[in-house]
Simulated assay, not measured.
Amino acid sequence: MPYRLTAFMLWLFLSSLAAADDRHDWLDLAWWSDGQLPVPSNYRVTSTTETLTTDEADIPIFIARPETEGEFPGVLFVHGRRGVDPLVQGHVRRLAARGFVVYAPDLYIGRFIEVMPIEHDYVLETDLNDVLEHVLASGTHAGDRVCVYSHTRGGYKTLKLAVTLDRQSDALACYVSYYPHMQDPNAPEPMQVYRYAVEADRMTLPALIFVGENEQYQRKRGIDMAVASMQGRGLPVELVTYPGVGRGFDFREPPVRTFADDLATRDALMRATAFMNRQLGAGD
């Protein structure tokens, strides 16, 4: 009887894995059932910096792309409060190594804004739109649209770019963001905790959002509420929550970096690569 019960429980557990696949989107059945590990594309990366001069700002754009010849889709990387410092440049290069031309403007330098600002300057969305126009007109990527890819406060700037400036209608193909700030940074505290930016419900772009389960409570609550609302309205958004990690898992470095941070970062890059390639009509 104990053996029969154990065998039955094992069968029940394995059956539940297959049945619960929709609840555990990290479970890769091709790997678990057939032993197939995904093999990502890897490219050596070259990087340059150019400056976009507008009537009001000189905006440096860090650009990373595969060294090899060929056409690659474009990605507009939008920074958070750190700006585009060496740690963030590392993320840009890791993304470019997946087979993208990545444009990462430093909007703070263009406006002489110190890093880690508390208040948000709404003119940055206008500058970001100028960068997008420049990228579409003179960029070296393939196609006539790009995906926006961001983290933290950059998630809010890209949301405004897509919705308020309506670039989702003519220039953007998708929205990818790591633990985005889904609320106006200048909104009062109750709005930060109990509400999310109304623009989220007007975004029609396919969206992929990553967050750690140990993210700051007030930030994760806003993300969860925004995604639930968007999904409830039938908008094409997916949320991936990583266990055991918190804020900054995509760029934290040793000695504070953990194995869980590394696993989450690699998985997110793989998912983002496949997602953006689908939306941009490129190969995985």
Score class of each variant (00 low, 15 high):
residue 75 V to P: 04
residue 89 Q to K: 14
residue 228 A to P: 10
residue 157 K to P: 08
residue 51 T to Y: 07
residue 13 F to Q: 09
residue 114 E to S: 12
residue 227 V to Q: 05
residue 18 A to K: 14
residue 71 E to T: 12
residue 218 Q to T: 09
residue 253 E to V: 12
residue 49 T to W: 02
residue 67 E to P: 01
residue 194 Y to D: 13
residue 47 S to M: 00
residue 271 R to W: 06
residue 5 L to W: 09
residue 223 I to P: 00
residue 272 A to I: 07
residue 135 V to T: 09
residue 236 P to V: 07
residue 280 L to N: 00
residue 155 G to K: 04
residue 202 R to S: 14
residue 53 T to K: 13
residue 156 Y to L: 03
residue 90 G to A: 05
residue 61 I to A: 04
residue 83 G to C: 01
residue 233 R to F: 04
residue 103 Y to G: 00
residue 236 P to A: 08
residue 147 C to Q: 06
residue 145 R to Q: 10
residue 81 R to Q: 10
residue 159 L to M: 02
residue 211 V to R: 08
residue 22 D to T: 13
residue 132 L to R: 08
residue 127 D to V: 09
residue 238 E to P: 05
residue 32 W to I: 13
residue 30 A to N: 14
residue 108 Y to H: 07
residue 249 F to D: 02
residue 215 E to R: 06
residue 115 V to E: 09
residue 79 H to L: 02
residue 238 E to K: 11
residue 184 D to F: 02
residue 49 T to Y: 00
residue 102 V to N: 03
residue 217 Y to F: 11
residue 152 T to Y: 12
residue 11 W to R: 15
residue 157 K to R: 11
residue 137 A to L: 09
residue 275 F to E: 07
residue 118 I to T: 13
residue 147 C to G: 14
residue 138 S to T: 15
residue 282 A to S: 13
residue 219 R to H: 11
residue 191 M to E: 12
residue 259 F to Q: 15
residue 108 Y to K: 01
residue 184 D to V: 01
residue 145 R to S: 08
residue 68 T to D: 13
residue 45 V to C: 07
residue 130 D to R: 11
residue 187 A to W: 07
residue 181 H to G: 08
residue 216 Q to Y: 07
residue 56 E to V: 13
residue 5 L to G: 08
